[in-house]
């Protein structure tokens, strides 16, 4: 298991002023198999704990109880070299393609630096060579993207570069928190497709965190539905969508507008 959560619980609050403690995550189990690449979608609305889960997986937060493990070891116990190896093996793509870049540097830096830091390249020249081949993995032409500043790229290009950066580091796991919610619909499919292909070609597992059940279904092997910090339903993606067992999952499915005007979604009916 490269990454695993066991009975993870996260609480916020309390502290100096003794405010009420609130559980953001309650007893969550999540495991990515080491043998084969897998796509797990974590679906939930705001406040469901999906971002807290992302932060646990990325080692940005420690569980209040339970464990967050990498290769069977507590993330909090990793030191020096191991921590670096973990940081390379587990990569992240965040929601905001505008906030993930430093606006004063050319985008190349975001590819060159990690190549050096993580020892994929011995010198600047090797790192540059690696950076030049990276954009192709997500269907971008290096000539259109490298050498530019973030503001000169579209949101979709920036987001795909973030994916390219993550993939260049040859991770085992990619944690993507709402990677397509801020890009246009026509590009959304392209980014999801490149994520999907990467799991097949590069053999990496993907944790796809989203509020959108439709894209989760399009891409995932397994779906976890979260509500108020708890996993209320989990299982094979087809089973969860076709035969949802939890009322909340059914509610989420009903909330998806059928993309077909001949199917009545009940907008004209009186409110329930």
């Amino acid at each position: 298991m490269p990454v695993e959560l066991r009975g993870a619980r996260v609480e916020f609050g309390g502290g100096l002023f003794g405010g009420p403690r609130k559980a953001a995550l309650v007893g969550v189990d999540l495991a990515l198999p080491a043998e084969e690449p897998r796509i797990i979608a974590v679906v939930g609305e705001s406040g469901s704990g999906k971002t807290t889960l992302t932060r646990l997986l990325l080692g940005l937060l420690r569980p209040t109880a339970g464990s967050a493990l990498w290769r069977g070891r507590e993330l909090s116990s990793l030191g020096g070299e191991d921590w670096r190896a973990y940081r390379r093996e587990v990569q992240a793509v965040f929601q905001d393609p505008f906030g993930s870049f430093n606006p004063v540097y050319r985008v190349d830096r975001m590819l060159v630096l990690p190549a050096l830091t993580f020892g994929l390249a011995r010198d600047e020249q090797e790192a540059r060579a690696l950076a030049t081949t990276a954009p192709a993995a997500v269907g971008l032409r290096p000539a259109d993207t490298l050498g530019r500043f973030p503001h000169q790229l579209s949101g979709g290009q920036r987001q795909r570069l973030m994916v390219a950066r993550a993939v260049m580091l040859r991770p085992r796991v990619l944690v993507a928190d709402e990677p397509v919610s801020m890009v246009d619909a026509s590009l959304r499919a392209a980014i999801l497709e490149s994520l999907w292909q990467l799991t097949r070609e590069a053999g990496l597992s993907l944790v796809y965190i989203t509020h959108d059940l439709a894209t989760a279904y399009a891409i995932a092997d397994e779906i976890l539905v979260m509500r108020h910090g708890e996993v209320v339903e989990r299982g094979d993606a087809v089973a969860v969508i076709r035969r949802p067992s939890h009322p909340y999952t059914r509610e989420l499915i009903a909330a998806l507008p059928p993309p077909d005007p001949t199917v009545d979604w009940g907008l004209e009916k009186a409110e329930e």
Partner: peptide
């Protein structure tokens, strides 16, 4: 292209986006 790029609960593992910008 806009219509086809819609994810649909009827179609799985199919991505029909639009290339280019």
């Amino acid at each position: 292209a806009l219509i086809e790029s819609l994810p649909d609960l009827e179609r799985r593992g199919e991505f029909r986006g639009l290339s280019g910008l």
